[in-house]
Design a protein around this nucleic acid. Structure first.
Lengths: 336, 336
DNA sequence: TTGAAAGCGCTAACAC
DNA sequence: GTGTTAGCGCTTTCAA
């Protein structure tokens, strides 16, 4: 910047003003402004955002923490976040926590050390210490996908209860009574909890007896084997499960695989509804019925909320989006 | 930092040294060091990385630019990059270019403005001005997935020619002679070009006549309709295509959809091999035969190469990874 | 073994 | 209309 200023015999201040579009505000000659702009081009000068950040206290960087960026659900959210914030002049640092609370905590710290201006995160924490800390510090952030109990913070989630309800009701309507549920640990996640609640409510409202042996939880780190084991036990005569509601796309895929290994024909031997709709579900055999989440909208809304928080608006925003059941053929629809 | 220093009656210098693990190097009392560390904890002091970055010229940030982070292929790469660099103390800014050269150029600029220490990118440029500029500036970067002709720069790619060759040969071995190819524009991409070359070579080596009417290119922005149109024309009696080799996972999905719309039964009416294997291909109907790319390894190697570049090692590294054909049932394997 | 001081590149308050 | 100056929070000579 000094170079530009010197070669024009003006001060750095002036250059800075022009570059920040504050030329008019400070009443600087149009001609002078143009000269600055030209010189900047000529010297191919690029402002150093780090220096600017040091001075302004802003980095124009936002953080996004999800459990796994290679999960299509989060990848789509990431994409919509990126699209939206880039229009607003921000960039985004993305990281995966692997459902590990410690790792998540570290990531939050690292991102804050990097002076991100705000954070969008899908938390896996159970004690929420970091969330509380951020709130206490007045640091701008939005929770997505998962909310935390009893804490007044911004969030953008979908109505998991309703999704679980719809999915299970659909199964019941199609004539299934022995309906299993496979969730994923950590089980404290609000999403899993609510989907389970929806499942239970659907059973209750439709007079289907709840059997707790039909609810299984498999560990995130060991999905495939976990699901295989669960399916095996579900198939035993004493349980005689006819249909499963699986709690997310990973479990659905694992379930498809396990069914294949066990020689189960879907939906004849076992019907399945998934939570999370992903593109290829449509072309699976059988096409997978799933509760679709408005992924694009989640990212979009999260950015909206975060932008408000960045502006210092203090009321917390809690947004709940609607899921929708996409009916295909994995629940014996053709039999009805 | 001043707070820590003052409350301990030492200088900022000393605190800085201790925090950067240079205490011993400068021969500072163990006891003093411990006092500093304790105080830092007590005051919950966090170093400001922006300020440090301004001083050291390093941001500990790396950039990753791909065409679309929600494409599973890139999402997996992103994940492996993230995993690897986080162990090395870096974070990564991710952005999508949408195969738009201008956007890519802007992104490179933005990331460099953010003082990223290095860049990993899957370029879509045809003139490579930005690539040349980075090389000229001595800025550390690695190309992934796609290489650029006649330019001596780091890259990590897979052998697309071989992949195309294998895929097409497989089709030929299964008895197909009228084999279509669907690539995706921008067609100058090295990947597309090489896959096409592999396709041509396979035909030649196996004495199948090349018919240029069987090579189609659909625009990235308008895939679904494009593929539908292509499939329609391929089905005309004068072309009588029996099998297609599709150039990536998006085209494969679009092809699945178009086939459904046209009432084509795979592989009876049309066989298909895809480039890019994605998890659910296994469970599609029919399960999709595909050329799998070592996604994890691409990310991993790219980071290795970038780290060397960061250290100032100047020889350029060009890594070519091996693809592998995963045979399922979309090419009439059961008929053979 | 420790500290003073300069300065990274920029912005903003305050002159003139 | 334009320039001077004082930092932002840190690291790194250099001196003691």
């Amino acid at each position: 910047m000094t170079d530009v200023a010197k070669s024009l015999n003006v001060s750095k201040t002036l250059v800075s003003m022009v570059l920040n579009n504050k030329g008019d505000e400070f009443g600087i000659n149009q001609e002078t402004q143009q000269r600055v702009l030209d010189k900047v081009k000529e010297l191919n000068y690029k402002p150093n955002r780090i220096a600017r950040g040091l001075r302004t206290g802003k980095s124009n960087l936002l953080g996004l923490i999800v459990s796994d960026i290679s999960n299509p659900f989060y990848a789509k959210i990431a994409r919509s976040v990126e699209d939206k914030v880039s229009k607003l002049g921000y960039n985004v640092i993305i990281a995966s926590s692997d459902e590990d609370a410690k790792r998540e905590s570290d990531l939050i710290q690292i991102m804050r050390d990097h002076q991100v201006d705000g954070l969008i995160l899908s938390t896996t924490q159970t004690d929420n210490v970091d969330i509380k800390q951020m709130k206490k510090d007045g640091f701008p952030f939005v929770l997505i996908d998962r909310k935390v109990p009893r804490l007044d913070v911004n969030h953008v989630v979908v109505d998991n209860f309703k999704g679980g309800l719809q999915a299970t009701e659909h199964l019941i309507k199609n004539g299934y009574k022995r309906i299993g549920l496979i969730t994923i640990s950590p089980s404290h996640l609000s999403t899993m909890k609510e989907r389970e609640d929806g499942y239970k409510r659907a059973l209750k409202e439709n007079g289907v007896r709840f059997d707790k042996r039909l609810v299984a939880e498999v560990p995130f780190e060991n999905l495939k084997e976990g699901v295989l084991g669960v399916l095996k036990s579900f198939m035993k005569p004493e349980l005689a499960v006819q249909a499963v509601f699986v709690a997310n796309n990973h479990v659905a895929t694992a379930c498809l695989e396990a069914a294949e290994q066990l020689g189960l024909r879907l939906p004849l031997d076992l019907a399945m509804v998934s939570f999370d709709d992903i593109e290829l579900f449509r072309f699976c055999y059988p096409p997978v019925t799933a509760v679709a989440q408005p992924v694009g909208l989640i990212g979009d809304s999260a950015v909206d909320v975060l932008m408000d928080a960045l502006k210092g608006l203090s009321e917390t925003k809690k947004i709940t989006l609607e899921p929708s059941l996409v009916i295909r053929k994995s629940c014996g629809e053709h039999l009805v």
